[in-house]
Amino acid sequence: MSSNYDQQIDLQNVVPGATAVLKLSYFATFDKIHLNLSGGLTKAHIGRIEGKANGVTFFVDDGSLIGIRDAYQGLFVDASVLTIDFTEPNTRGGAAAQYLSAVPRNLLASLVFEIEIKAAAPGGIVMKAEAEYREPTPNPFILRRKDFNVPLPNVGENDIMLPVAINGGLIKRIWLHAPNVTAVELRTNATPRIRAKKASIEFAQKRNRLVPQAGIIVLDFVADGNMMNMLNTAGVNECLLRLTTSAADTLKCYIDYVDDMKRLA
């Protein structure tokens, strides 16, 4: 647990079919945000979550997927608590690496999370927010999670070009939500970085005490806890992701960057 743990009371508009808004005002470094769900509200009722720093989106996810990410990392998952975790709990680099991408609210004019509540949620729902945080820090790096959707129309190989150069960055993980993907190839500047079947990728992750989840492949560059292994797509001109599928599919992809707040624009 972080050095401070407290309820965050500025959480508004918690009603079905609306977007709840959580404003974090403490001038502190936020490690984790816990959304406690009750009154019939479940993770299935939570849709898109967006974190905005100074009005700019830096973090996106889905309420039904965050628990999958925690389970993959071997973290405890509670059905009634949705945790947004900016730390790297399995790192071997000590506190500096573990807290590298926590969010320094003290360096921001505003920090807001918008949480979609689906219309199917029942009346009388309750959501309360708690946060784990530390003293203010000058560290400008944050976890920046981006997403995109793309069709995988071919049975066999499907090629996707990932952002590079000024649009690239230091990548910890690429989360590939597509159940029909059977193999992955990743090339930077035409040089293979990963070329393996799903089973081989998951075998290597299990060796690092990770827990692969159904319907998702994780390209985890820090699976062994070494942050020095992050993929730097800012330093290449081309990054090709080739996915082999057993049937046509649609990819929902999330990319986790460790990024400087100066790039939030």
Rank of each mutant, 00 (worst) to 15 (best):
N229M: 06
R193M: 15
P212I: 07
K198L: 14
K197W: 08
V181S: 03
I9M: 12
Y254W: 13
E135Y: 05
L65I: 00
L22M: 09
K172I: 00
V222W: 05
K262N: 15
I84D: 00
N237P: 00
N237I: 11
A199V: 15
M161S: 14
V112C: 06
T91Y: 06
D159Q: 11
P136C: 11
Q73E: 15
R209P: 02
V56P: 05
V218A: 08
M227N: 09
M161N: 14
F59H: 05
A102T: 11
Q7W: 09
G235H: 06
P179I: 01
P179R: 05
L108I: 10
T29I: 07
L186M: 12
K172M: 10
K128N: 14
G17M: 10
D31N: 12
P153A: 12
A120P: 01
L231C: 10
A265G: 12
N4M: 11
T91Q: 04
L170N: 08
E132W: 03
N4Q: 12
A165K: 09
A234N: 12
D62F: 00
T137W: 01
H34Q: 10
V211E: 13
G39S: 05
D85K: 02
A20W: 05
L82E: 03
D78M: 01
K206D: 07
G47M: 09
T188I: 14
Y133L: 14
Y26L: 12
A234P: 02
L24F: 13
P138F: 09
A131W: 01
R144V: 02
S25T: 12
A196Y: 09
Y72P: 00
A119H: 03
N139C: 08
N149I: 04
I84C: 00
L65P: 00
K52N: 11
I115N: 01
K252N: 14
V211A: 10
T250Y: 05
R134G: 15
E114N: 14
L107W: 01
D249K: 03
A53R: 04
I255V: 14
Y26A: 15
R69K: 13
D256N: 07
D224V: 07
G39H: 03
L37Q: 00
L100G: 02
K252L: 15
L170T: 02
H177T: 07
E132M: 04
R173Y: 02
A97I: 01
A165M: 11
M227W: 01
E132T: 02
N13E: 12
I171R: 04
A234D: 13
F148A: 12
K23M: 10
H177N: 11
G169E: 06
I66R: 01
L41W: 02
D85Q: 03
L264D: 14
S110V: 10
Y254C: 05
F203L: 15
I160S: 04
Y99M: 08
G47F: 03
G94H: 07
K252Q: 14
S64C: 01
L231N: 10
E238G: 10
L219A: 08
I46L: 02
Y257W: 07
N36C: 04
V218G: 06
K146L: 15
I174F: 07
L75A: 08
K172H: 11
D6W: 07
N208L: 08
N208A: 13
I125R: 03
A223N: 08
R48Y: 06
Q205H: 13
K118W: 01
A131S: 14
E88I: 10
I255K: 08
A248Q: 12
L22P: 01
G124C: 09
